[in-house]
């Protein structure tokens, strides 16, 4: 892209068009040579740019951390609406928050933003509330298992533990 721009610009300049072939070719060759000399520094810039883009790219574990915060928020909302569920749901909400904190350590990104307000799972009877939470945990388990399969060596154990924990939540909510 960078290499072709100056040459193309010269081609469309009337002044250059008026020049003889040999002169034009010479100019082009000169431009290419000059650009060729600039390839090394340009490549250097390009590498830096790529580095910047990598920093801005979402970490593959970010969605898992977001999901952990959302699940925690759902459990907190459910037990706020029905305090009788606290002994069951508090440890599960705590676990999701602990997962988010551990994931933040790995990704190097703080778990600052709380998840969006949970969907209205607080309405309805207790069985319906638990069924909705169970379904959410099952989805979370599958997502974590998928990520575990693809996770690099230093992340596999944590992501695996999170997948297993979500499976135990499904069991606990039965």
């Amino acid at each position: 892209m960078v290499l072709t721009c100056p040459v193309a610009r010269r081609r469309t300049t009337p002044h250059v068009r008026a020049l003889g072939h040999s002169r034009r070719n010479l100019l082009r060759a000169g431009a290419l040579l000059a650009l060729g000399g600039a390839v090394a520094p340009l490549t250097g810039c390009d590498l830096l740019d790529r580095g910047d883009r990598q920093d801005q790219a979402p970490d593959p574990l970010e969605p898992l951390a977001t999901q952990a915060r959302e699940l925690a928020a759902r459990h907190r909302a459910a037990l706020a609406a029905d305090p009788g569920l606290a002994p069951l749901l508090t440890p599960i909400a705590d676990a999701h928050e602990a997962h988010a904190a551990e994931l933040a350590k790995l990704t190097g990104r703080p778990a600052a933003s709380p998840g969006p307000s949970p969907a209205a799972t607080t309405g309805g009877d207790r069985a319906a509330v638990l069924a909705a939470l169970r379904e959410a945990e099952q989805g979370g388990r599958e997502a974590a298992a998928k990520l575990c399969a693809e996770a690099p060596v230093d992340r596999a154990a944590l992501v695996g533990s999170i997948a297993a924990a979500r499976a135990t939540h499904v069991e606990a909510l039965k």
């Binding site: 002994p87 440890p91 599960i92 705590d94 676990a95 602990a98 997962h99 551990e102 154990a157 944590l158 695996g160 533990s161 999170i162 297993a164 924990a165 135990t168 939540h169 069991e171 606990a172």
Partner: peptide, 15 residues
């Protein structure tokens, strides 16, 4: 759960 132990889950199984 069968043993009546609470909580029935741990945060990081196997850790």
């Amino acid at each position: 759960r069968t043993a009546g132990v609470t909580p029935v889950t741990v945060a990081f199984p196997g850790r």
